[in-house]
Nucleic acid binder design. Structure first.
Lengths: 220, 220
DNA sequence: ACGTCGCCATGACATCCGTCATGGCGACGT
DNA sequence: ACGTCGCCATGACGGATGTCATGGCGACGT
């Protein structure tokens, strides 16, 4: 009896009016849980799920979703590049990035890649469906606090080489290791590291790595 | 049967037969999503949710759950210590740890703290309800692959001081910083770090931090 | 054409770091 | 009582690291 949900008029049988969703997240449990959560909404329907970044475009081409819920940390390809790929091949498909870490650099790069929204997994569950609806209707959805922090931090001050060198040093390798990987002189590597340390305001290489990582300035 | 549960065999109305759940996870979105997922099961009911480790015991004392779904990474207190606290105050309450990272040390410490199960968020969503039921019935639920890796890696070879020093160096501070924080001599800190580097098989301090972190040997 | 900037490189210097030997202290198990 | 082990400390040594000055190269905008 109560199953008769009040739905926009004109839609009696088919899923015509439903917003079609694609979930991209590498953790099967949260993916399934999000599907269950969003499946409770009468105007939403999950049409596909993937666990790798490089499978998003294929799945989207097959199932034609209206909105993609995109995680950032995924194998195959990170959510930022996957977002760019989706926007390039399916311009009518919106992307809502849902990520664990509210790194300012993630937000900046996601919006630059064409995402329509950016929410962190700290947000209340009931707001997610509304965020999906707003994104689908053409609006942009951005966490206000994160947007402010993103503006305050600004873009990455690191050059391409500096970020690359700093990213490699994340695994704990020595200068000689990095120089060998990048086919550079050891002195050059030390110079780039010194510049990165100065720009980040750090006093150690490890500290520079941490700061850059927290700001989302490092690559995958 | 050893179970002295005095429950009416054919109850149809009240929630008497339902397994009462408490969700502990700092990410509101996945918490709500898990609640939606588990709420679909007719024999499960979520009676409380918390987002901090130091609120689990209070909530459990009020709502008397049968099973606690416990995340590891939480503010206030990590899931391991929260598990120990729950087991100490409410022995009849089982704990199922649900974590993002399948670190061997996490599994070992969780089981030592009295957890009845340990699953990673990579597992399929449909298996979660079964895991809850098994834990509730007194069985242990452990990811087989993770259990094997945990046995292969073994316990942490680091002493208490070594793990403490290594944990502090995670933020990228210098030897002088760590020595000041711990009221130690710089030489002593270097000795502990050297020992930690040797035991982990690393060749750098940063590498030792990474290895120990991946194995779950570091503190919160 | 010129200045600016990023990138690569070299060399030198002060400092920090990792290693080792050595010794003292207390806790623990046999 | 003795040996073992963890913990703290000191001192010394070689190597790694961070900083700086200097220079050359190509791309870019004015």
């Amino acid at each position: 009896m109560t199953q008769h949900v009040t739905r926009p008029p004109g839609d009696v049988t088919g899923p015509t009016g439903r917003i079609r969703l694609l979930l991209a997240d590498d953790q099967a449990l949260v993916r399934g849980a999000l599907a269950a959560l969003l499946g409770l909404e009468p105007d939403l329907t999950v049409v596909a799920e993937v666990d790798r970044g490089d499978e998003v475009v294929d799945a989207a081409r097959r199932t034609r979703p209206d909105v993609v819920l995109m995680d950032v940390d995924m194998p195959g390809a990170d959510g930022i590049t996957a977002t760019a790929a989706v926007r390039a091949t399916l311009p009518s498909c919106r992307v809502l990035v849902v990520t664990t870490f509210g790194r300012p650099g993630y937000l900046q790069r996601a919006m630059a890649a064409g995402a329509s929204g950016f929410v962190v997994k700290d947000t209340p569950a009931r707001q997610l469906a509304d965020a999906v609806r707003r994104v689908h209707s053409g609006l942009r959805v951005v966490d206000p606090a994160l947007a402010a922090e993103s503006l305050a931090v600004g873009a990455s001050p690191l050059s391409a080489r500096e970020t690359e060198v700093l990213t490699r040093s994340r695994t704990g390798g020595t200068v000689a290791d990095i120089a060998a990987e990048l086919h550079l002189s050891e002195g050059t590597v030390r110079n780039h590291l010194s510049a990165a340390i100065g720009k980040t305001g750090a006093r150690t290489r490890a500290e520079a790595v941490r700061i850059a990582d927290e700001n989302g300035w490092l690559l995958a």
